[in-house]
């Protein structure tokens, strides 16, 4: 399966195996935590020079989602750039590539904790985007409903007959969906982390990304 469907505030949404969220009614494609320019920032800050192909890889995967779905709107849910300097020093080729992807559709950059100011790319820059009944923002807020957010990079970790499997995952319940990180160079926060348990209802579901999308119940720690 390339996606798992679920409903949020009455809207049908698709958690795609790629890690992107598709809202057919709004022809809206949403991705979170692209962290473009991450290796530049790592080199700047730590001196480690990681393979500088992650922006290219992230954009390639985003492009194939756009080609497959032809969205009218693309929402990047924050932390699209690893920091504002990384955004400023994005190589010319990748800057042009982004502009090409934006052609013919509305593009919304939501502000994240890594990229808290406007960036010099096309599209609209917003702190959050209300599209009733849904609201798109970077970090989930307790008590909200119909909320689409990112930030936490949730990942599922489970053992299958002795084989460890770890996959970025969506988490959703009746109030919200938290998206996995779409960027190539991103780690994750284990799905049983208290930070996530505190946000999600006990009956929350996880959708694992990867070659196929798999829906599993989100594990809850036994209350001790």
């Amino acid at each position: 399966m390339d996606a798992c469907a679920f409903t949020l505030s009455g809207e049908t949404l698709f958690a795609r195996a790629s890690g992107a969220l598709w809202w057919p009614a709004g022809r809206l494609l949403c991705v979170s935590d692209l962290h473009l320019g991450k290796c530049e920032r790592i080199a700047r800050r730590s001196g480690n020079m990681l393979p500088p192909y992650e922006t290219q890889d992230t954009l390639l995967r985003l492009q194939s989602e756009i080609e497959a779905l032809d969205p009218a709107r693309v929402v990047c849910l924050g932390d699209s750039f690893d920091d504002l300097d990384a955004a400023a020093s994005l190589p010319e080729a990748e800057r042009l590539w982004l502009l090409r992807l934006q052609a013919g559709r509305r593009w919304i950059w939501i502000e994240g904790n890594h990229d808290p100011g406007p960036v010099e790319f096309g599209g609209t820059h917003l702190a959050e985007l209300p599209l009733p009944p849904l609201t798109f923002r970077h970090i989930a807020r307790k008590g909200e409903a119909g909320e689409v957010s990112g930030h936490y990079h949730p990942k599922a970790c489970l053992s299958l007959r002795g084989r460890m499997v770890s996959r970025p995952c969506f988490l959703h319940d009746s109030d919200r969906v938290i998206l996995p990180a779409f960027g190539t160079y991103t780690g994750g926060l284990r799905w049983d982390d208290p930070a996530l348990a505190g946000l999600m209802r006990r009956e929350a579901t996880a959708v694992l990304t990867g070659p196929m999308a798999h829906a599993l119940p989100m594990p809850r720690r036994a209350l001790t």
Binding site: E40, A43, G47
Partner: peptide, 12 residues
């Protein structure tokens, strides 16, 4: 320099 086919780290 990182030794990559793609030259990326001139500054760093």
């Amino acid at each position: 320099t990182g030794g990559y086919a793609l030259k990326a780290y001139d500054r760093w």
